[in-house]
Amino acid sequence: MLVNGRKLAEQAKESIREISCHELAVLMDNDIILIDVREHHETESGILPGAVHMSRGVLEMQLENHPSVAHHPEPLQVMSQQPVYLYCRSGARSALAAESLRRMGFAHVYSLAGGILAWQEAGLPVISLSQRHAGQ
């Protein structure tokens, strides 16, 4: 049976956990692992504060380079024990990414329901890449 991308994302959402914009906004006061899985050109319109960009196409291969764990001898082991929050434009790619991380052994992976579109619709802050780099 042939399945299109939208259906595949819907199926992924059945096996992963989604988090609402407001739930994530509360958690962002803490030091969390937040990953933007959109393509690089999509981040030019803004990124969630504290997010690290790792596009969906290379996510699994780049996780061990995440700044919060890259210095550890076993970065994936360390990251797999922490909650990981993923988002994309609308929540489809982040659901697929969350499913993939779950298959890799990550126990606490969440996809932002509705993605950055829902985040912006809720009036929550987005920063430009230049603001993000200036803050580092």
Rank of each mutant, 00 (worst) to 15 (best):
I19Y: 03
H133M: 08
D31K: 11
G50Q: 11
V52Y: 08
E99T: 03
P75A: 08
L86M: 13
E99P: 00
E23Q: 15
A118N: 05
H72S: 15
S20H: 05
G5A: 12
H133A: 13
G105H: 11
C88F: 05
H22F: 07
Q11S: 11
G114A: 09
S90H: 12
M54W: 09
V58G: 01
Q120S: 10
L24C: 15
I35F: 08
Q81E: 14
Q120V: 07
S20Y: 06
M61Q: 13
S20W: 03
A25C: 15
P83Y: 08
R56H: 11
E64L: 07
S68E: 06
H66Y: 13
R102M: 01
L2T: 04
Q136L: 15
M1G: 10
L96F: 02
P49F: 09
N30Y: 07
V58I: 12
R38H: 09
H133R: 11
A51V: 15
A97M: 09
P73T: 10
H71K: 14
V37G: 03
E64F: 10
N4K: 14
V109L: 02
A12K: 00
D36L: 08
G114S: 10
C21I: 15
L2Q: 03
L59N: 01
S130W: 09
L76H: 08
M79H: 07
F106C: 02
L124P: 03
V52Q: 12
L129Q: 15
A107W: 12
V3L: 07
P49Y: 05
M61D: 06
I35M: 08
E60T: 14
L34T: 07
A98F: 02
I33H: 02
G105P: 05
G123W: 11
V109Q: 00
T43F: 06
R38V: 03
L63G: 00
E18F: 04
A95N: 01
G114L: 04
F106M: 03
I33S: 01
V52K: 09
I47V: 11
E23S: 13
R38L: 10
D29T: 09
R38M: 06
A134L: 15
L24H: 13
R17I: 02
I32L: 12
L124M: 13
A97V: 06
A113W: 01
Q81W: 15
V37H: 02
L34M: 12
A134Q: 10
E42Y: 06
M104T: 05
E99F: 01
L117V: 10
G5F: 05
G91H: 03
R93L: 12
V3M: 14
E60F: 07
E44K: 07
A98K: 00
M1T: 08
I47R: 00
V109D: 00
Y85W: 07
L63A: 02
L96V: 02
V109G: 00
S55Q: 10
A95Y: 01
S45Y: 13
Y87K: 00
I32R: 03
H72W: 13
I32M: 09
P75T: 04
G57S: 04
D36F: 05
I19H: 04
I16E: 06
H53K: 10
V58A: 04
L59E: 01
